[in-house]
Design a protein around this nucleic acid. Structure first.
Lengths: 138, 138
DNA sequence: TCCTATTTTATAATGAGTACAAAGATATGA
DNA sequence: TCATATCTTTGTACTCATTATAAAATAGGA
């Protein structure tokens, strides 16, 4: 089974030309649902793609977001984080270690877009914060 | 009526010594519910307090947050924003002009803290995004 | 192959936020 | 009141994420 073939097709759905770099970044996002930062993506891919530039990772993610293939999470004040899962789910950030986790199985009402006279609302982001078990114990 | 007397008392509730600078910053936040950035606060106060340093504005807000007198909003990827209103309400950010607005009168269930086996959740932030009417028309 | 458009890359620049150390203000106690 | 210790403010230098820019590499079509 060729994972990058799937990825290839996924990119084409969003009218993104699947270059080697773009396919690698999308592939990484699909296999690593940890909402990685730019730096994590770059560091992970760099060994197998020695000429990869961090600028390319930035460019690639900006393109993915522009085309709607990836969602940028605004939950971590230090770094942008990215999510390929567009289903209704929330996120949790640990204020100690900074890791971001998914929270599924919340009531669907939470993700409804309210009507408002002054705004045209396109999306909602629900972010919880606190401590993860590992950090709480220490 | 002396507004800064109120502010003074408010700061003491959170064990914050009310210096001139701290009182001015808190006073500004209480009167300007626009979720201002550090720069906006500094620019607004600077004319009447010529020796004010931007570092002081940073220090002051970090102290306010540490003591729970102010909440930092993570909704604008460019700048930190601040809110003195700790009642249950959501925020809307216009992706065009970047202004942040309050959204009140949402169902209280939205702000309930869920139980989760892996996390101890302390707070929730609900952020909507889209276009404000002004930006939509242009 | 040659030409053109697109993509990638390295470097430089921008800008928010923090670290640090000196200067200033405030409180306390003799 | 004065001396001293503590806290607060300030300016400067620094870090680090992100973007701008322009050159180099690549891909695709005639």
């Amino acid at each position: 089974m060729n994972a990058s073939l799937q990825t290839h097709r996924y990119l084409l759905q969003f009218s993104i030309k699947p270059s080697v770099q773009r396919t690698a970044v999308m592939d990484y996002l699909m296999k690593n649902r940890t909402h990685p930062t730019i730096d994590e993506i770059y560091t992970a891919l760099s060994p197998s793609m020695p000429t990869l530039s961090k600028t390319t990772v930035y460019n690639t993610l900006n393109l993915f977001i522009e085309r709607g293939a990836v969602q940028a999470l605004v939950i971590d004040e230090k770094n942008a984080r990215f999510d390929v899962d567009t289903s209704s789910h929330a996120h949790f950030i640990c204020k100690s270690c900074g890791k971001v986790h998914d929270i599924f199985n919340l009531k669907p009402e939470l993700f409804e877009i309210p009507q408002h006279p002054n705004f045209t609302i396109h999306s909602v982001e629900i972010s919880y914060s606190g401590l993860c078990n590992a950090c709480k114990e220490s």
